Computed example of a mutant assay.
Amino acid sequence: MSRAPMILSPQTKGVLAGIGACTIWGLSPIFYKQLAHVPAIEVLAHRTLWSLVFFGGVLAVQGRLGQVRNALNTRTKLATLAFASLMIATNWFLFIWAVGAGRTTESSLGYYILPLVAVVIGRVVFGEALSRLQWGAVALATGAVVLLTVGLQAPPWIALTLAFSFGLYALIKKRLDVGPVVSVTGEVLLLLPIALIVLLHSEHSGGSAFHAGAWTMGVLLVSGPVTALPLILFSYAARRVRMTSLGLVQYLNPTLQFSCAVFVFSEPFTGWHMIAFGLIWIALALYAASMFAQDRAARRASVAAAVSRTGVM
């Protein structure tokens, strides 16, 4: 007898898509390590160019290129996307530079503390109330940063900049009424003139990656799909998975980055790092617990509201 094909539920498909996105992001240090010999600003320019080509192709196939124009058709929308472009360019550039400079451990720390930075931004900007567990998580993360600053005699500026730049980027995206693919296409389109200036300058100075060999050029070309694919997967997951589950899946990204740094790149991991990361992991456990508690409370409230509407006891 032939076995019936297994049909996955939308929730399962969403979780798998989220895992796929975070796996690509988490292993991307190995990809960008292949470009350590290319200046980070030039890698960023190529990433911008080929991302635009890829995203533009996707939207063209879907017949949605006109939506990019609509996303830029007012001064407010243009200014919003311009600031988003600045934040994502800062994040991309610093990540590329950190990997090439052998500081992937710090970049992974940035993405570990990102959820807690998002909580703080939500509190400051939207006045969102924080539970005791969330306050405890924020306090532990703050303590970890202070300990690293004292122990290494320098603030972990890479981690903090990565976390806050992406946190602000997420804040801007929350205010946009366009889809992620359309908005990112608009963002890289706004960055394109700067990217072209960088590439033309590199070509004029004789140090362009266009002449660095087929392997380097091939990796740069693939940076477009490597940027686009996880974003598409993640947006697919976000529409099908509860935020609690999606938030936990996102921890896979910094965990894989951390593994690349310590086990693949053999970056130094001092006692101060061990203490700080330990505090961050405890903070994330508290944060996850608070997410589960909020999710349960929201579901109970939803059930109670449904019962109240139907009059069922």
Rank of each mutant, 00 (worst) to 15 (best):
V184P: 00
T104D: 08
P115I: 13
T74W: 13
T227P: 09
A170F: 07
H37N: 05
V145Q: 05
V145T: 12
F210Q: 00
H46W: 04
Q62E: 09
Y32E: 07
L130R: 11
T74F: 12
W157P: 06
L176M: 15
L152Y: 06
F54E: 02
V68G: 00
W25Q: 02
T90S: 11
L168K: 05
I24D: 05
L279S: 05
P5T: 13
G100W: 10
E203H: 00
L147F: 13
I7H: 14
H211I: 01
A163W: 13
T227N: 09
T12G: 08
V241I: 11
T80K: 15
R175H: 15
E106I: 03
L233A: 06
V150W: 10
V117D: 09
H211T: 03
L284R: 02
L171G: 05
A212Y: 02
L116D: 03
E128Y: 08
L133D: 14
D177W: 00
V124H: 03
V145W: 08
L72H: 04
Y236S: 08
F263G: 11
A118F: 05
A285W: 06
L176Y: 10
T90H: 02
R299Y: 00
L284E: 01
M6K: 07
V146Y: 10
E203V: 04
W135F: 15
L86S: 12
S51C: 11
A298T: 09
L116M: 11
G213A: 00
G167L: 14
Q257A: 08
A283M: 02
A84W: 03
D177E: 09
P180M: 06
L116V: 10
E42Q: 09
A298N: 14
A170T: 11
F95K: 05
G179C: 07
L252Y: 15
V146H: 05
W135K: 14
